[in-house]
Design a protein around this nucleic acid. Structure first.
Length: 330
DNA sequence: CGTGTTTGACCCGCGC
DNA sequence: GCGCGGGTCAAACACG
């Protein structure tokens, strides 16, 4: 079980801002996965002698080794370890399969979107000269993040540019008290300006992709004039580079999970950054691996909270770690 | 010291 | 031509 926990290295990476819906879908599936894992964890927890497990975990000084564990119970533990390892292997395989399915689905979706880029545009073209803050219908996603179709209201002002740059808009619900204009989309942005516009008391922040000038993408982030808890991010252009988290994966670096070095690398990796605190500055999260970029922060925190609050999960973690220790001591 | 943010100044398009 | 407003620049500043 410990092994599978270590292998949880979430790779949800929409290639562009238009992938946020996808990320939401994926994440819900991962929630289900975690629930399954919890169920299994619970079983492990029940089947292991809790008291002994906790002793093993909290006394790190080889007392465990010296303690008078009878050979019978040691044998039972070894058997249990074997069983848990098998279960872990099975879970890892399930996880692998799930990730493969996810990747297949995602690539299919990307392919479809690439082949049908005009379908959404055509509908928006019917709208005529909407106001610059058209919030009449804000589609909210599961996690409060959503995206409207690419708008052409800017193209009315600048038709030439619209031929080259793709403009999309993303709405993201945040805490109204949160004054930071941060939209976590996974990419790294460099803020280059901020303005208070006439039609909205909230300041508008201007960002460039940190890969600029090679990557021409810009984004503007401003709170909705109607609902201060909604951030409106307007993206201009398309990234001409891979997603930072994908780059991490492709380069094969794996720095995030300290205990995973000894594990086989066949399984997909999921990184849930539980240590990440609310940062006041998006760009300070320079480590794309720990950023869990396209994963909504709230969701991550909820998952982390639910897991860490779950006594079964904690006990199972204790069991797994102590099991590992025992295994190493043998 | 390098990198990113802040913020006032500047540029430019648009309407009058 | 002038003023307004949105967008960008770049020096100063903050931070690790």
């Amino acid at each position: 079980m410990l092994l599978s926990l270590h292998k949880l290295n979430l790779n949800l990476s929409p290639c562009s801002s238009s992938g946020i819906y996808l990320a939401v879908m994926d994440y819900s599936s991962w929630i289900n996965t975690s629930l399954d894992l919890n169920i299994n964890l619970h079983r492990v927890h029940e089947e292991l002698p809790k008291k002994q497990v906790e002793n093993n975990f909290f006394s790190l000084d080889l007392e465990v080794k010296k303690s008078s564990v009878k050979q019978e119970s040691a044998g039972a533990l070894a058997e249990e370890l074997k069983r848990v390892s098998a279960e872990n292997k099975k879970l890892t395989e399930m996880l692998t399969e799930m990730c493969e399915n996810y990747n297949t689905l995602r690539s299919n979706l990307m392919e479809y979107m690439r082949k049908n880029p005009d379908k959404e545009l055509s509908s928006s073209k019917k709208r005529k000269s909407a106001s610059s803050n058209n919030n009449s219908t804000i589609p909210m996603g599961v996690n409060g993040t959503s995206e409207s179709s690419s708008t052409d209201e800017e193209s009315c002002k600048n038709p030439k540019e619209d031929m080259k740059t793709k403009i999309s808009r993303v709405y993201m619900r945040t805490e109204a008290s949160d004054t930071s204009l941060i939209v976590k989309d996974g990419y790294q942005w460099r803020k280059y300006g901020q303005k208070v516009t006439r039609d909205n008391p909230s300041p508008r922040a201007y960002f460039k992709c940190s890969f600029a000038p090679s990557c021409p993408v810009k984004k503007k982030v401003q709170r909705s004039v109607d609902d201060q808890s909604v951030l409106v991010a307007t993206y201009e252009g398309e990234h001409n580079h891979t997603h930072p988290s994908q780059m991490e994966v492709t380069t094969g670096s794996n720095r995030s999970v300290s205990c995973s070095a000894s594990l086989s690398s066949s399984a997909p990796t999921v990184t849930l950054d539980w240590t990440k605190s609310k940062s006041s500055s998006e760009s300070k999260n320079v480590n794309p691996k720990t950023e869990s970029p396209e994963v909504p922060q709230v969701l991550v925190e909820q998952m982390a909270t639910s897991l860490t609050k779950d006594p079964n999960f904690r006990a199972a973690l204790v069991a797994a770690i102590s099991g590992k220790m025992l295994h190493n001591n043998n």
